[in-house]
């Protein structure tokens, strides 16, 4: 019975899942931390924005497999180092989020910012307590795209030997065993679904004001 394969390999699947989560989400966290100040700078300065946003787009056009392979030559890692995948996905996340952050901050009503300034907020404090919270909905939308596409992209890493659940694809293909591949696909989809749902939830909880008056 082929279905036996799943229960017999639960431990292995769980291990790969854990690896997958780390490889996909660590870059989201690092990317967020990097993208907020960059996006903030881009939102405040037109010229800077004209450079940063297109540059981020160009980064995003680099194919993942190509990036995984070229990175070792640039950052001096070994070719099978998981760090390659983390760095590559961090680059994508930053590229995606810089635009989101810049757009989100740009969309904060200027009257609100002016009012906060008039009440005596200094720029740094104003950013943290006024602009950033109001930018959360757009930011969360960006994070969702980044997280979901990272979860899907990690599996390409299997081609260079570091791919979390993606290793079920290469292994299943080499052994001519479709069930293993199918298991991998379903696990990746479920993981994406759960992470996406969690991000939606975090977005809701952190922006209670967006839910009142929604029926206006």
């Amino acid at each position: 019975m082929v279905w036996d394969w799943i229960p017999r390999n639960l431990g292995m699947i769980g291990g790969l899942l854990g690896e997958h989560v780390v490889l996909a989400l660590l870059p989201v966290l690092i990317g967020l931390v990097l993208a907020v100040p960059i996006g903030w700078a881009a939102a405040g300065n037109r010229a800077l924005r004209g450079v940063l946003v297109p540059a981020a787009s160009v980064l995003y056009t680099i194919p993942s497999l190509a990036l995984f392979i070229v990175l070792p030559a640039i950052i001096g890692t070994r070719i099978l180092d998981p760090l390659n995948v983390v760095v590559a996905l961090t680059i994508y996340t930053v590229a995606l989020l810089v635009r989101s952050v810049a757009d989100a901050l740009g969309a904060v009503p200027s009257m609100v910012v002016a009012a906060a300034t008039a009440m005596g907020y200094r720029p740094g404090r104003r950013f943290v307590s006024v602009e950033l919270p109001l930018a959360v909905p757009v930011l969360v939308a960006g994070l969702r795209v980044a997280a979901v596409s990272n979860i899907s992209l990690v599996s390409v890493g299997a081609l260079i030997g570091v791919g979390g659940l993606g290793q079920l694809f290469t292994d299943g293909y080499q052994r001519n065993f479709p069930l293993e591949i199918l298991t991998g696909i379903v696990m990746v989809l479920l993981l994406a679904l759960v992470v996406d749902g969690l991000l939606v939830l975090i977005g809701r909880v952190s922006t209670p004001w967006t839910r009142v008056g929604a029926n206006a």
Binding site: V145, V148, S149, S155, V156, G166, Y173
Partner: peptide, 19 residues
């Protein structure tokens, strides 16, 4: 659209080729 975005390409490709 979001669901399809999450589909791992390598998995889909290997599965279709096997089938």
């Amino acid at each position: 659209a979001n669901g399809m975005r999450a589909l791992p390409e390598l998995g889909l490709l290997t599965l279709l080729v096997l089938l």
